[in-house]
Amino acid sequence: MLELFFAELTRAGIQFRRYLFESIGGIVISTSVFYGLFLSASYIAGPGLQFGNRLDSIIVGYVLWTLVLFIMANISGTLQREAQTGTLEQLFISPFSASQVFLTRAVADLLLQSGLIAAIVVIIMALTGRWLAFPLTLWLPLLTVLLGAYGLAFAIGSLALIVKRLQQVLGILNFALLFLMSVPTEEWTGSLRIVGNLLPMSPGAGLLRNVMARQQPLDLPQLGIAFVNGGVYFAIGLFLFRWAERQTKRYGNLSDY
């Protein structure tokens, strides 16, 4: 596995250097979209608008949405590009399983792209004048969000293996993910709180908003719920991906386009 990881990390580094302008463009677009929405809300509400820590929560949700979109597009986009170029079969006949290859590739890409995500966070904070807290405890709820994101990415990847093209589905899913990352489900009560804990990545996102935007201590019982949530969605995603892999091999349409 270490050999596979370093190979994928090398591949990701080469692509990052070769397409550096595209990465910089992604930073500009992401920050411009958020700042445009921020200015529009400020104009509509008038000069008396006071966001308070709600703006901090919105920043956390937007950055998480950007991170999750990258993870989703990484796995499903790789499957579609490999199918179009006719190299998908090569990935499936490697000494490693397809799920290991795509997970390792996604993690290697994420390590390189984390610098871009950090740049987006810093630029947005500078533009809005709101500075988030970054305690060491944020890594635990962030891990739960990553588990759920990779689970969803593998679930969508299973569809990409079978139907090959998912542009319209991904476009609709992007808006649903924005809802999941932005709505403060951690403030829901009663039966709605249970619903919020069942939504993918929602418990971890709520913990990150509490820790980074509201400077609250980490809620350990809620962290346990977040880990269960992320682990379940990750397991479901891997199961669906391996099922789709068996189906495509069974019917011989792995490299179809």
Results as ranks from 00 to 15, higher is better:
E3L: 14
F5V: 07
F6N: 12
E8H: 14
L9I: 01
T10G: 14
F16A: 15
I24Q: 08
G26M: 04
G26I: 09
S30P: 04
S30V: 11
G36N: 07
L37T: 07
S40N: 07
A41H: 02
L49K: 03
Q50M: 04
Q50E: 01
F51V: 02
R54D: 01
I58R: 03
I59M: 05
G61N: 04
G61Q: 04
W65E: 00
T66A: 12
L67F: 10
L69G: 13
F70I: 12
M72C: 02
N74H: 15
I75P: 08
G86C: 08
Q90G: 12
P95I: 06
A98T: 12
S99N: 09
Q100A: 10
T104G: 13
R105Q: 11
A106E: 09
A108R: 11
L111I: 09
Q113A: 13
L116K: 14
L116S: 14
I120Q: 14
I120S: 03
V121T: 15
I123E: 02
I123C: 09
I124Q: 02
I124P: 00
T128R: 12
T128H: 03
G129E: 05
L136R: 01
T137I: 10
L138H: 02
L138F: 09
L140A: 15
P141T: 06
P141I: 03
V145Y: 06
L146P: 08
L147G: 00
A155D: 01
G157I: 02
G157Y: 06
L161R: 09
K164T: 03
V169G: 11
G171C: 10
G171P: 07
G171S: 10
L173M: 14
A176T: 06
L180D: 00
M181R: 02
M181K: 02
E187Y: 11
T189Y: 10
G190Q: 03
L192G: 03
I194G: 05
V195S: 01
N197S: 10
L198Q: 01
L199C: 04
P200I: 06
P200M: 04
G204L: 01
A205D: 00
L207P: 03
L207A: 00
L208A: 04
P217N: 05
L218N: 06
L218G: 03
D219S: 05
L220T: 06
L220F: 12
G224C: 08
I225T: 13
I225F: 09
I225N: 05
I225Y: 12
N229V: 08
G231Y: 04
G231Q: 07
V232M: 12
A235W: 11
A235Y: 03
I236F: 04
A244G: 11
Q247E: 11
K249W: 02
K249P: 00
G252T: 05
